[in-house]
Amino acid sequence: MVFEYPVQGGDFTNAGTVSSKVKKMMRQLGVDAGVIKRTIVALYEAEVNIVAHAYKGVITVQLDSDKIYIKLDDEGPGIPDINQAMQRGYSTASPEVREMGFGAGMGLPNIKANSDVLEVHSVVGKGTTVEITNNF
């Protein structure tokens, strides 16, 4: 099963709606609660990153019997130094993002901690692609 969801940059009212839908879907399919939690925390962090940093994006979710693969593709400023962005505490978030309780430079490290496989690719001035795979 493959699903696609659009995400709008700056739309904090709806940030998390995709993660919520995917969580409900995984529950319906009877996926282990621990795997659901890790996957959804990683997805939510990445979804908030699109809302916080990009102009817009698309989240593609591929659910198989033994794993979930999530691709978050955004159009935005991109990440100049991914290694730096992966370090805890490094953040370029706006004051608005910080007011929402994020932007402490913990998102990408937490996505990594909650993913079996994480791939991050970025082109400055074009956008960022985050790929998360978790096995059941």
Binding site: F12, G16, Y44, G101, F102
Partner: peptide
Amino acid sequence: LMSDVLTIKDTDSLMLITGLANTQTIRT
């Protein structure tokens, strides 16, 4: 800090005490 909340692994019967009141608190 919701980023901190998202790092908690064991949340069974856990209560969050917070002064941050917005939709993302509930989403988190």
